[in-house]
Amino acid sequence: MSPLLEIENLRVELTTRDGSAPVIDDLSFSLNAGETVSFVGESGCGKSMTALAILGLLPAGIGRVTRGSIKFNGEDLTKASDARMREIRGNEISMIFQEPMTSLNPVFTIGEQIAEVLREHRDMNAAQARSRAIELLDAVRIPNAKGRVDDYPHQMSGGQRQRVMIAIALACEPKILIADEPTTALDVTVQAQIFELMRDLGREFETSIILITHDMGAVAEMAERMLVMYAGRKVEAGPVDQVIDHPKHPYTKGLISCVPHLLAELTDERPPLAEIGGIVPGLAEFGRNQCLYAARCPLADDKCLQERPLPLAGKNGHEAACWHVEKVS
């Protein structure tokens, strides 16, 4: 079976003051129907840009796809017309954004905002769309959906607004749901509810989910496969359990060990956290023929500075782009 979404050798360039920089550099990955894949990395590594590229929402006039393809059900989205992309967006591929506070329109009721998607893509009339909106609010577990449908966003809590965003995203039963840090602004208890909701709805509608996050715990709980990005490049990808238990790339290893995870059995021991020194390189350094992580990497040598490592595939599709894979343990 061919994958639902297949990205091959994608390169996205952004025009900056100093010329153009590849914010996504030779990215390939595929997403199967009903699967959850997580994109991980620090800010500025190209996770959100990948999502925008899939949706055809790259910043106008600045960002463009210069190489590669994004095939959705066999159709290359990089060549699709604006009209065709409008048909797909919110209908077959939809997205939940990070900030539930700012991504809803404050001057329309939530019912109208859900109905808008349905009228646009499903040719429903106002009454049908409204009753479907109530069903959807009920599906995302907003209590008293009928009474809340005429509320404005400011009348809802952060968690409820994110539920409304999910209702909008799922209104047309999309094949792919892209969730860009959907719970970063929310409390942990609310985050747990939103994750549970996404899992249930994903199962019910057989939606594939792309979860963009920096939280390894969230990845472990939500996704089957993960993809680690650094400075616009895929540095490691594979099944979640395998990558977290045996990371092959020093960056992945650093990302996992630098977070103070909740321990099941706590002792008096408190070793300092492992650090990844430095920060993500600026756009000017993207695209160089070298390992871009070398400046922060404890294993870096001359070879890392001279040639870009390419992803080497291993067992179960677990791949890593590092010259020193065998030294990472």
């Binding site: 985050q191 747990a192 549970e196 990845v219 472990a220 709980e221 995870h261 909740l262 099941a264």
Partner: peptide
């Protein structure tokens, strides 16, 4: 609060024990 935190260390356990 504690059971709501997703963690790589208690994978598999947390979902069963989670107290929503």
């Amino acid at each position: 609060l504690l059971s709501a935190v997703p963690s790589v260390k208690k994978r598999g356990v947390s979902q069963a024990q989670a107290q929503m």
